[in-house]
Simulated assay, not measured.
Amino acid sequence: MAFIDALLGQRFMQYAVLGIALASLASGLVGPFVVVRRIGYLAGGVAHAVLGGMGVAWYFGGDPMAGALIASLVAALVIGWVHLHLRAHEDMLISALWSGGMAVGILFISQTDGYRADLLGYLFGNILLVSDAQLWLMVALDVAMAVVILLFYRQLVAVCFDAEFARLRGLNVTFFYLLLLCLVALTVVILVQIVGLILLVALLSLPAAIAGQWARSLGAIMALSTVVAAGSGYAGLAIAWGPDWPAGATIVLTLGGLYVLSLLGHALVGLRGRPGSAAV
């Protein structure tokens, strides 16, 4: 009841609910492409490079989220280029960008005079401090991603499922692959405000992984993963309220538990569907 009362009477809780909805939409739109294309590691590299942009922006008196947006897009393009042209050194270069981005961010934040940014808030998120400006940024990014996906849905699907065949059909695979990574970058900027840099890869990939066990078409996976992300977000927020746990970490733990249950349920359904399973 205390959680319901806070939800009805506290503006910051209402902002948190809106933030979860917007983050879930971003996760549902882009997460399935990440899972199908198996670029979770690349998404992690983009996510951790974002802290560098935040630190630089804070040091020069700018908006950390503007720095995050620029850094994420630059990192996405660099990582995409490395993936396409330097495959032999891909793991090492992405790891260097991953750790280097965080190191730059920590360095600039530590050297900022006066009040320093809450580094733990950037690393682990603070959904209860989402502001008006952040919500509007999330709305704008969600709309931009939805428009891009509607315009280029078939091309993105082709790049994810069979890039070589798409290339033979004359599709500019390089362009659409980089476009996909830019969509991942925009999603990172949205999710960092909910669960932080350390945990956002889980919110980006796990809902789509759960949905992929029960849905067949990519459109259905998008819809179901959005619902899964939102449900886990609201459940995690409610669970965290009473004992005053970190909301972002609780959301990810809730999502992880749901993923395990989904795996078990899917395995059980598959077992029952096998010939002779009744005898077992």
Results as ranks from 00 to 15, higher is better:
residue 1 M to S: 06
residue 7 L to D: 06
residue 17 V to P: 08
residue 34 V to N: 06
residue 38 R to A: 05
residue 39 I to W: 03
residue 57 A to H: 11
residue 60 F to A: 14
residue 60 F to R: 12
residue 69 L to E: 13
residue 70 I to N: 10
residue 84 L to T: 14
residue 88 A to W: 11
residue 89 H to F: 15
residue 92 M to C: 13
residue 92 M to W: 14
residue 92 M to T: 15
residue 95 S to A: 12
residue 97 L to S: 09
residue 98 W to V: 04
residue 99 S to K: 08
residue 101 G to V: 00
residue 101 G to C: 04
residue 107 L to S: 12
residue 109 I to E: 00
residue 111 Q to N: 15
residue 111 Q to M: 15
residue 112 T to Y: 00
residue 116 R to H: 02
residue 116 R to M: 01
residue 118 D to S: 07
residue 118 D to N: 02
residue 120 L to T: 06
residue 125 G to E: 04
residue 129 L to R: 13
residue 131 S to I: 02
residue 140 A to P: 12
residue 140 A to Q: 11
residue 144 A to N: 13
residue 146 A to L: 14
residue 147 V to R: 11
residue 148 V to G: 06
residue 152 F to L: 11
residue 157 V to F: 13
residue 159 V to L: 11
residue 159 V to Y: 13
residue 160 C to Y: 04
residue 162 D to L: 05
residue 162 D to V: 09
residue 165 F to L: 12
residue 182 C to I: 15
residue 184 V to F: 02
residue 187 T to V: 08
residue 187 T to F: 00
residue 189 V to N: 15
residue 193 Q to A: 11
residue 198 I to T: 13
residue 201 V to S: 05
residue 202 A to W: 10
residue 210 I to A: 06
residue 213 Q to N: 09
residue 214 W to H: 08
residue 216 R to H: 10
residue 216 R to D: 08
residue 222 M to K: 03
residue 223 A to S: 03
residue 223 A to P: 05
residue 224 L to S: 04
residue 226 T to G: 10
residue 228 V to M: 03
residue 228 V to S: 06
residue 230 A to K: 00
residue 232 S to W: 03
residue 232 S to I: 03
residue 233 G to R: 07
residue 234 Y to Q: 00
residue 235 A to L: 08
residue 236 G to W: 07
residue 237 L to T: 01
residue 249 A to P: 07
residue 250 T to H: 04
residue 252 V to L: 03
residue 253 L to V: 14
residue 253 L to D: 12
residue 254 T to D: 01
residue 255 L to N: 08
residue 260 V to Q: 08
residue 269 V to S: 10
residue 269 V to A: 10
residue 272 R to S: 10
residue 273 G to Y: 06
residue 276 G to W: 07
residue 278 A to G: 00
